[in-house]
Write a protein that binds this DNA or RNA. Structure first.
Lengths: 354, 354
DNA sequence: GTTAGCACTCCTGTATAATGAGTGCTAATC
DNA sequence: GATTAGCACTCATTATACAGGAGTGCTAAC
């Protein structure tokens, strides 16, 4: 509600306009029905006549905040209307003590491994929001190498395992052109652990390239393979993204049209695109909880929106969690939910990462 | 077409009835429209009048193979009709040489790791069938322990890694009540590898229980944890099921109803139920490619069907692959596709598993 | 500047009729 | 006796018309 200067070049809205825009968005968010002037005065006991409200709404339409689905229907927020609402009008609705307690309790038994924690996070977000819940694994730049293990498998294949500081495992197979001697494997294994333990996973590829000269002499083949392998290692996390509760989206009226549902599920299947979307959402804002709905940003899928927040590990942003649903979402509640959960996840992960 | 005795107590159908049932199912499978008598004589140039066909169709309805969606509509196969079609009428439509080549080529570069192979399998099945593609990881009974690695993480947590004979990794965290000494870890690690290498993963839990007495003396806590951990290990495979192409189901007319789509996607989200379904499908049949559509077997989701086949590793059935879609599927083609792919996957996995 | 009033728009729902695909039945035909 | 042509009938689908209602824009009065 504070009258802060907006960062976009937005024509300043009069208090009454703001109030009515607020009412329209609120109403639409709960009912999913176009809202008319009468509804506004009744449901939000505004001390004006319907006719006046009509005039204001006509102004808001001209300014691009509202939109009529057809002449003589009620109005619906536009993209821009939503953005204004989220950044200038809505009050984040703090979670109640009970809700916080419940969330914390839900997390209390999930302290073991990162994947479980994140899987659980997405599940919880989905459950609490009735939207699709998303949780991303900590970024490679916030993850360190704990240990390498090389395990020969079969004739001439080598399983390369890497445990990170959270205890998560990345693994991949390296196909060798010739069988490998045990002593060679041990030597390389030691080399890797001595040189790269504690190193940021994201920086691994470059570091390997630099230090590899040291073993290149005798064991050209092995070293070469190792290089190729470790280059790819950072992306070899089994599950980079955890997703839950997508089915719930079918309940939302905006996804009753099969076409729309199809697009959304198509997006949810492609984790790479989904990550891009999340990232874009957070880059957009000040780093904390943000949301996205600019048409151009939706990667081709219209009518969806993401409420996301980055969680911090050791004080630095390490990954994203959030929910995805229709543009018409209960932002005040969801924002609080996502932020609070992000805080919690951050603390837990910080603890897990030593 | 062979007149083999059916295993169910099916009233024997006369040749003409069989022919017409065949035509009806075929037509319905391609058009998704109820098929009338005229359509049958026209599209399948049967040398009978529409009226005669009508009579036969009425008989087939009475016998429970066909069904009218309403009086005076065309007929649609029933559950039973589909089953009869699949087991007695359809001719498996062999893949063309070109199709086989393409599939083999698709697999030629994916020889490294099991997960990649299976992921690719589900992708390929989805692509070729226009349905959802499914691939299950090799069963624990067909998988052997290759190596254990224990990696301390943080203060008092222990990452337990297990590489199997395919090079796949299972991992989990064990939370210790007190910090662990390095020598203890090494000792346990050696113990595990010396005793359990080569053991069937499925039999791990029992074996561990028996031999654990040997180290129980000094290191009660560690041993106890190990037991609990290894008990769970077989199920700790990151991805037990690979799924792809579910979005394509939206194209099928039977999933235009959001209710139906919702149910299917609900099922696809729950991998456990999905595995049950696949298993049931294969238990139903003679072990090779089978399909399922008995209403009672669908786990509550009506109108879906699975074409699945188990792949063999070292001659023994090790896992399932298949496609899931509406009952109205091009079985002759899909059966061939799934069987051929299963054969291929089996050979590749046999090679991978040493 | 605000509001009451009114004509107008357009979605929604219901009723009615026309269309057409497909059936079941009967009588004629092979 | 099996097959078929013919015909009346059923029922989903589509089009059309019409009434009702929510909501608007505009104007004139407050």
């Amino acid at each position: 509600m504070a009258k802060k200067k907006s960062q976009e070049e937005v024509p300043a809205l009069a208090e009454r306009e703001r109030e009515i825009l607020h009412a329209v968005v609120n109403s639409y968010i709960t009912t999913a029905e176009p809202v008319g002037s009468r509804t506004v005065v009744k449901r939000f006991n505004i001390d004006l006549s319907a006719a006046t409200v009509r005039n204001v709404m006509a102004d808001l339409e001209e300014l691009g905040y509202l939109q009529q689905v057809h002449t003589s229907s009620g109005r619906v927020p536009t993209d821009r209307g939503y953005r204004y609402y989220v950044s200038h009008l809505m009050h984040v609705q703090e979670l109640t003590v009970g809700e916080r307690r419940r969330i914390e309790r839900e997390f209390s038994r999930k302290l073991d491994d990162v994947d479980g924690l994140l899987r659980h996070t997405s599940h919880l977000l989905a459950l609490a929001s009735h939207q699709a819940g998303i949780a991303e694994a900590p970024d490679a730049s916030q993850t360190r190498v704990q240990r390498f293990e090389l395990v020969p498998v079969g004739e001439n294949r080598l399983a390369v395992l890497m445990v990170d500081n959270y205890g998560s495992v990345r693994s991949m197979m390296a196909q060798m052109s010739t069988p490998i001697e045990t002593y060679q494997v041990e030597q390389l294994n030691n080399f890797l652990n001595q040189n790269f333990m504690g190193l940021e996973v994201g920086a691994l590829a470059d570091s390997v390239r630099i230090r590899l000269g040291e073993v290149l002499g005798e064991q050209r083949d092995l070293a070469q393979r190792a290089l190729e392998t470790l280059d790819l290692m950072p992306q070899r996390r089994e599950n980079r993204l955890f997703l839950d509760g997508a089915v719930q989206l079918f309940e939302q009226p905006e996804f009753q049209r099969v076409e729309q549902a199809r697009e959304v599920f198509g997006l949810l299947e492609e984790h790479d695109r989904l990550i891009t979307l999340l990232r874009r959402a957070v880059v957009d804002g000040e780093g904390r909880t943000v949301f996205i709905s600019r048409q151009s940003d939706n990667l081709g899928v219209e009518g969806i929106c993401v409420v996301a927040s980055s969680y911090n590990v050791d004080g630095k942003p390490a990954g994203l969690i959030g929910v995805l649903g229709p543009q018409r979402m209960p932002y005040p509640k969801l924002t609080a939910l996502v932020e609070y959960t992000a805080g919690l996840v951050g603390r837990l992960l910080t603890k897990l990462g030593k």
